[in-house]
Design a protein around this nucleic acid. Structure first.
Lengths: 227, 227
DNA sequence: AAGAAACTGGACCGTGGTCCGGTTAGAGTG
DNA sequence: CACTCTAACCGGACCACGGTCCAGTTTCTT
């Protein structure tokens, strides 16, 4: 099992990953064929071993067990190496999710309708929510664990890409609205932490979340479903 | 300066604060006259000193400087005492915010319109968003620092109260909708972390956030503002 | 072969959180 | 009021983890 990398080449040390101010251009394809940008042979090998070890830890003992030290030990590698490669814990977890993330991006950017281009925007937005909800339902532990603390929640590049996609669709549906801000609102309903809270802690079935998403999209699109 | 406490009596030790499964009843007035439930004299004194010390640290060196050890030292108290009293770091920060929180709750539960009862629900909802945005704009550091990590974000009692209020208003406005879930969505737009990201990191002025809130409420209420 | 750039690993630090032996407030009793 | 008893409280030693640093090693280039 191989994972793609979203780390670019890392200078000396203290420059893990830049916030990416304006990810106006969607990535995907930038570093897709070349799984390892320009990594030295030993570095690439260690990187692979670390991801493999981390994945094993997640599978066997849950995301909480993915301690930086545990991963390092399981990969027979020094702790510093883990940090150098992935920046911090979030970075490592994010890298673990990278594979499915890329697949998902490909699906809504270039896949078949209704998720991909070809269907009317409202239709695509509905499908997007459904897909997000289902994807988050699996991988929930990891998604939660990968979430950084408060101030950086909205700087995650992957999330920015998703949100931007929503904004683009919204502009086609309700051009007169503040689609940028509206996209944040809609994305809020698909937040892994919220999904976890509603399903695990309040026992709300996923189907109801999907219905709520559809209703929300309709409401925003200006066609109240039952009013 | 005295702060109200939202900690109930704490049994032996490892029971900091219960999740409060169904906060259907709004608090406010439960432990309002009695600032300290049944706290022993020395405990109450230490509690006050701790809050005072924490507030001083925030004022002088920012929320990041509020280390549990630093607070303990500044209050000339043992570290264990801080944890016993407030459960964890978020608990301490939450207690610091408690005063303004209570004031805010009082304002929309029993204050003058349009925030309080008396105005039509849509009007109250608009006012609620405005008030939240402005309140979060001050206190932003504290609000951010007080936010617990991913899985517990939605279990904060104070947030639950606010969200519940929104749900109640929504039920009066769009009874046919899934107001429970809709309230989560609306609250998402008022999340301190989002506000911080938009204003501090993307330079979006608060006024635009307020406009977006109004527009969102109108949209949800089924009366598209310009369509 | 040799030099430079990149990588490695583990010692080190600060912080959040736990534990438990010792201390004290304050109620009950005479 | 003095004494005693107990539950609650206190404090700081202790642990685990995330994150940093840097001296020594390895890879790649020329």
């Amino acid at each position: 099992m191989l994972y793609a990398g979203l780390m670019s080449a890392i200078p000396p040390f203290p420059t893990p990953q830049e916030p990416v101010d304006h990810p106006e251009l969607l990535q995907l394809g930038s570093a897709m064929a070349a799984d390892e940008p320009c990594l030295r042979a030993d570095a690439a090998r260690n990187r692979a071993r670390l991801l493999e070890a981390a994945a094993r830890l997640v599978a066997e003992r849950g995301a909480d067990a993915v301690t930086m030290e545990a991963v390092a030990a399981a990969a027979s590698v020094g702790k510093g190496t883990v940090f150098r490669r992935f920046g911090d814990r979030t970075g490592l977890l994010t890298a673990l999710l990278d594979h499915s993330e890329k697949k998902f991006q490909a699906a809504f950017l270039a896949g078949p309708p209704p998720l991909g281009p070809g269907a009317p925007p409202v239709e695509r937005l509905r499908a997007f929510g459904r897909a997000m909800l289902r994807r988050s339902a699996d991988e929930l532990d990891l998604q939660l664990a990968a979430e950084p603390c408060a101030p950086r929640r909205f700087t995650i590049p992957a999330r920015s890409v998703l949100r931007h996609h929503v904004a683009v669709l919204l502009r086609q549906i309700v051009p007169e609205a503040d689609c940028e801000l509206l996209s944040y609102t809609l994305m809020g309903q698909l937040d892994p932490a919220l999904i976890h809270h509603l399903t695990s802690q309040r026992g709300i079935p996923l189907a109801r979340l999907e219905d709520a998403w559809i209703a929300l999209v309709d409401r925003v699109a200006g066609a109240p479903p039952a009013g």
